[in-house]
Design a protein around this nucleic acid. Structure first.
Lengths: 213, 213
DNA sequence: GTCTATAAACAGATAGAC
DNA sequence: GTCTATCTGTTTATAGAC
């Protein structure tokens, strides 16, 4: 058994994990390299051996999250089914991912609404962008199919995607505010289940009761 | 006519306006005092004459946004009407506010999902918190009334509030990503109208068409 | 691959003149 | 109320030993 034991976590991945936790919570600018190094139990210099700049580390961190999201969504959609079923699974998988790794939700929200905090020409940044495009394309395809086949109400697709992101990603990124509003941790198992039920009910019935019925 | 001419904007407000624009776009940590000072055409020291610390300036900036949101929501809800009508107006007013001042949406989203980036004991922070509580309480009241009177489907109220925030605030805070997804500026007048229509349709009909109908 | 030491730039904040 | 000059600490990043 040499150093290529797959059971051991590489220094690179330990750094990425610590970086995700910190960047997710406080954002790129508020987190120092020394803080990440301390959290992972290394010196700053060792960290710079694995990532040349802070920006590159951040981009790699975001890329890693988007890769996981893209992978799981691609996998569940490949199973096929009706558009309504695939939409259900797209939502379910995304929620499970956010609920399992709270840092993912926050970092994903940051990657959506923070203006490019970093140079924008890093290869890691471009790869992350492509993954984000694929994630959105998945939703696009499902919604298009569902509307074409009469399973979904005809609506503006990009706006519908924004609505889905807002309903799912914002909620699980809302941290202390969300906890206080909901009354307990938004990541509590029962509360995650409740979120799924509430979203499903919203998608099926809306909120306002039609007077004409 | 002395220096108390109300038509002139006070240095304090000019600072707050410049700070909002910068903090909204890049967050507390990424914006330097000198940058704000330069943007407003002052030296750092002059800025420190009006606000003792950067944290206090940030808290005052957030407080100012929440005060405007709270004021407009309180005003529109005071006009009364059915719960469904008041919900419509709560949404309409919030959207108009976000659409009119893009920085508001981003700063509001930050105040919701960023963990207290500042000391948490500043009076400005506490005032902002109270305003946020009032904004949420408005939604709480409207939803409670609507469900009690059969105008709204019975749903979990905190989760419904999270859904409304996600649908409205996240969308208008989504910046470049939103623009790219939608295909033009999310703040374009027609696109804001479309957002209102899409949200209203979602609230009235959901997204999924029931097979049993 | 990890470390100590350090460079170079910049941050928030203060002193004190005008 | 605004300025210039400065203090003090921290930042990202590098040099070079082991």
């Amino acid at each position: 058994m040499t150093t290529t034991n797959t059971a051991e976590i590489s220094p690179r991945d330990r750094i990425l994990e610590a970086a995700e936790e910190l960047f997710a919570r406080r954002g790129f600018a508020a987190v120092g390299i020394s803080e990440i190094a301390e959290s992972v139990g290394m010196s700053k210099s060792s960290l710079f051996h694995h990532f040349r700049t802070k920006a590159q580390l951040y981009a790699a961190t975001v890329d890693r999250v988007l890769a996981e999201v893209d992978l799981e969504l691609t996998r569940t959609l490949a199973r096929g089914g009706s558009a309504a079923d695939r939409l259900d699974r797209w939502i379910e998988v995304l929620i499970d991912l956010m609920a399992r790794t709270p840092a993912h939700a926050r970092l994903l929200l940051r990657s959506l609404f923070e203006e490019d905090e970093i140079s924008n020409v890093l290869p890691e940044q471009q790869e992350a962008d492509e993954k984000l495009q694929r994630i959105i394309q998945h939703a696009n395809n499902v919604l298009r199919d569902g509307m074409a086949q009469g399973e979904l109400r005809v609506a503006n697709i990009p706006h519908t995607i924004q609505t889905l992101i807002g309903i799912i990603v914002y909620h699980f990124a809302s941290g202390e505010f969300g906890d206080e509003l909901i009354g307990r941790s938004i990541f509590h198992s029962d509360e995650v289940k409740r979120r799924k039920r509430e979203i499903k009910a919203f998608l099926h019935h809306g909120l306002v009761i039609e007077r004409g019925l």
